[in-house]
Design a protein around this nucleic acid. Structure first.
Lengths: 341, 341
DNA sequence: ATTAGCACTCTACGATGGAGAGTGCTAATA
DNA sequence: TATTAGCACTCTCCATCGTAGAGTGCTAAT
């Protein structure tokens, strides 16, 4: 373990590095933080920290910069204390959130923008994973020849609407019958379950029923096939102003990963069971393309089940303190919103 | 005007430059294209082209690169001929489009991806400008205490759904009455018109009606307030691999412009009345941040009214021939899709 | 245990100097 | 008269060199 003084030096280096990139030298530390120690002593301590693996020198006789595990130590420390945003920032956040209140899908788009504009990094928000949401009610409305609108109400208050092609012969009455059947039998099940069960069930009933059942089966397959949750991204342009940008290849990788919905959605699954915000620092990041960046994310829940995620992606040299608080609060806010204020 | 030989040299330079950036020298032209002329002659011609303003030298004794007006001349020429994609590319495009067929909003997201992946530049797609779409039918469905789902069917087959807060006292019957009222009186009007008219109308009728009208007015205001059309963007990461990328500041500007929905939506309004694809080359671009890039876009229509746009953003050094065809075909495809296959 | 002093190392940056590519001009040529 | 060969000139690109500056590690003094 680290003695108190080494800790403080480590934190000072990290702090310094977060505020301005470039290796941190012993002299700058003594200047900006009043340890009452000379540069030489700091040098010795820094040398120790390097040995432990919390700092490293980009090259001999340069200052030190934090390693991923240095950040990890730091983050573990600050998350152990209660994280409090400066009061001003906190009220600002709440106010912004209040302004955004509306339908969850619109909300997530705005939320990603807000995360980005408050953190100056990339903001992400993923809409609920539809396959594990539970059905509250379904409505089927005939619309134009050969099309029907499907409106799914879920417990989370999310509506999915789709237009599905249907046999033009189907009447609104037929549709009502189908909707009623689903509502009575499947209200409360997850869309995934419904998809599994409903098709088998219907096939069994086929013998008893009229010949429109074939069509109904097809429609249900259409309706309940899971659509990849939406992913909302903001703040890419801000990323390009970072000094880290010299490494274009890296940012390019990051962007292509972010643009790939599938990667994002898989990622959500990985963190679904975490309590509180999850923090991935550099190489800890499960996504290869992001191993040079840090990611802070949290899930929002309906009841106790996580159904979506939000987060911030930034350089490893990131203001963790603030970012963690922002992500945490926002996730909690959304959870609260879903449970009806 | 240009004589045939100068034209060919200009096109050769542009072609060469599109394939690989960097000033094009007289010798490379003679090598890659068989004019049966010596470099010296080409030099003279290029010098003439420079005088006219179609080419320029980044510095003395470097090769030539096309200017914006050079590109303009080129683009005007190739659009005058009938644009035909190579057969392989064309069928590829059609096949991809067929695969995407579904609900328009999902479609646009995929369409932007496709535009980007086919062109290797940035693909954009804007969803219909809701304020000028016409109402086909409205449904109001009570949902949980204090909330109601609004489902708007429009002639374009687009559904807008929203959850609006309502007075918990309102019954489904009340809602039906309101929906009926709107359907009877306003089916066929644009959402903008409805918003204008409906509120005045209701206030007048207030005296005759019950006191729930206040609530109804509020709800209508909520429902018909125009939401900024969605903008779907893809291919940002690809942009970073271009050689032009050295100019990070430029790309950053571009990205922030793209991330700003308002800029995009305003832009749509500007091109709404064009026939066929619109092409903005470099400085011709109405958006300041994009003056270093070219934009090719086209609107898709419902009947004869343009209701949304798609496009490609790339470097001025862009494969115009291909990009124009892709944009044009995709827009036409969407238009066709909206008119029911 | 801490610090002052000093030699050493490494980067960043500007200056210097070919090599290469391409031009413009002039004189020769078909 | 239009084209071409030849040549001097210009400009960029790149590598090399040398210096200034920042920071370290070590040793000896406190």
């Amino acid at each position: 373990m680290l003695d108190e003084r080494s800790r403080q030096v480590l934190f000072a280096v990290i702090d310094c590095y977060i505020n301005s990139p470039g290796p941190v030298g012993s002299r700058s530390v003594t200047k900006q933080y009043s340890f009452g120690l000379s540069p030489a002593t700091i040098r010795n301590i820094m040398s120790d920290l390097e040995e432990i693996g919390y700092l490293r020198q980009p090259h001999t006789s340069a200052g030190r910069i934090p390693t991923d595990s240095g950040y990890r130590y730091y983050v573990d420390a600050i998350t152990a204390e209660k994280q409090s945003l400066e009061k001003g920032v906190e009220t600002d956040l709440i106010q912004r959130l209040e302004l955004l209140r509306k339908d969850i899908n619109l909300f997530l788009d705005d939320a990603s923008r807000m995360l980005s504009s408050m953190s100056h990094y990339i903001g992400i928000a993923m809409s609920p994973n539809t396959s594990s949401t539970t059905l509250s009610r379904i409505e089927l409305i005939k619309y134009r020849g050969g099309q029907a609108a499907v409106i799914l109400f879920t417990d989370e208050g999310i509506i999915r609407n789709r237009i599905v092609p249907v046999d033009p012969e189907l009447t609104q009455q037929n549709l009502n019958r189908l909707a009623e059947y689903i509502n009575v039998n499947f209200s409360g099940s997850t869309l995934d379950e419904i998809k599994q069960v409903i098709i088998g069930e219907m096939i069994r009933e086929k013998l008893l029923c009229d010949n429109l059942v074939d069509e109904a089966i097809r429609i249900c397959r259409d309706i309940f096939s899971s659509s990849p949750g939406n992913v909302y991204i903001s703040g890419l342009s801000g990323m390009l102003s970072l000094p880290e940008t010299c490494d274009i290849a890296r940012i390019k990788d990051l962007m292509s990963a972010i643009e790939d919905k599938q990667i994002m959605v898989n990622f959500l699954d990985r963190i679904a069971d975490a309590q509180g915000p999850r923090i991935f620092i550099g190489s800890e990041n499960p996504v290869d393309e992001m191993k040079k960046f840090s990611l802070i994310s949290a899930t929002y829940k309906e009841g106790n089940r996580p159904i979506g995620a939000i987060g911030i992606i930034g350089p490893t040299r990131m203001n963790y303190q603030q970012a963690i608080s922002i992500v945490d609060m926002t996730a909690k806010y959304i959870t609260g919103m879903l449970s009806g204020k």
